[in-house]
């Protein structure tokens, strides 16, 4: 048996070594999470406006258009749970925090990252970069195991040959305040809207409402403790998106948000629904639910006006 184990180990050694080297190499590469972590570790005490949430905030709210020191700590697919976890992570550092902005998307109250097949590979970043949460599934603690092996090879290949693998990579921006935009605009926004809603609806799990409400409560308590204003925003969407939505879910979510925000708190908690905002035209969108550079500028300026209000 010893001979068997020895030979199997010798046989597997090159494979295991290769996998280990790949894991370490990919971990060493800069990505959006490492860049934001680095920034927040250095500047969290100066941040006055913190933007959290998913890609709707990541692409839609540009801190460059806001007064004071604003920073966008949103990530694609980020749910309320991880907004709350990040707030907790920087709890003691956010000493000058005045405003928190969190997007409430169509699906925000009904989903979780763990069951979102498109984005759950991102779970590892919270563990690797922020050291928060340990996932039962070992795949989500490792870089190479949470995506297809071919994707890892492509990432390494692009690094070695000098092209950037991550469209959101921080190197693409001159002034990195956490905001990023998408590289291309969809050709057929009508068709894309319908498909996008269908994809988002696959991740809707009504049973997640209770836990998301719990995270909302925690976030509100956090805002009260830090005496900062809390803004929940539904970012503008193109008509092809909201026309195809299962309206019951969104109506219910909006009703919940209105109810929550109407309660008396020791700080200002507001919900602003801009889903169908007529100030945004087709050129303000890169696709049915993400704003373009001009759209983000417009939304950020509008929000900045709101932040100035007493």
């Amino acid at each position: 048996m010893k001979l068997f184990i020895y030979r199997v180990l010798v046989f597997l050694l090159p494979v295991l070594t290769l996998l280990l080297v790949m894991e370490l190499y990919i971990r060493s590469l800069p990505n959006e999470y490492t860049a934001k972590k680095e920034y927040m570790d250095m500047h969290a005490p100066q941040v006055e406006t913190l933007i959290l949430g998913n890609s709707h905030a990541l692409n839609g709210i540009n801190p460059a258009y806001m007064d004071g020191h604003a920073y966008n700590l949103a990530f694609a697919g980020q749910t309320l749970k991880y907004d709350w976890e990040l707030l907790q992570y920087y709890d003691s550092s956010l000493t000058h925090l005045k405003n928190i902005i969190i997007p409430i998307s169509y699906f925000s109250l009904y989903n979780n990252l763990e069951s979102n097949s498109t984005n759950k590979f991102r779970l590892k970043y919270y563990k690797i970069n922020f050291g928060i949460l340990r996932h039962e599934n070992i795949l989500y603690n490792l870089e190479i195991a949470s995506v297809r092996f071919s994707k890892n090879v492509t990432t390494i290949q692009q690094q070695v040959f000098g092209t950037t693998a991550d469209a959101h990579a921080p190197g693409k921006r001159e002034e990195y305040l956490g905001w990023s935009t998408r590289n291309s605009t969809v050709e057929d926004i009508e068709k894309e809207g319908k498909e996008k809603v269908a994809r988002h609806e696959r991740y809707i799990r009504p049973e997640e409402l209770a836990s998301n409400m719990h995270y909302l409560d925690n976030i509100i308590s956090f805002a009260e403790q830090h005496k900062c204003k809390l803004y929940f925003i539904t970012t503008p969407h193109y008509a092809s998106y909201y026309r195809n939505m299962e309206t019951d879910y969104f109506t219910r979510a909006r009703h919940i948000m209105d109810s929550i925000c109407s309660l008396p708190y020791s700080t200002q908690v507001r919900y602003i629904d801009m889903m169908k905002d007529s100030r945004f035209t087709k050129s303000d969108f890169v696709n049915s639910d993400h704003l373009s550079v001009s759209g983000a500028a417009r939304l950020s300026s509008i929000l900045n006006g709101l932040l100035r209000e007493p």
Partner: peptide
Amino acid sequence: LYYLLIILICWFAGEE
């Protein structure tokens, strides 16, 4: 051949 099979398995392995 064994290494080739392992490479192919790793190549296509993703979500369980």
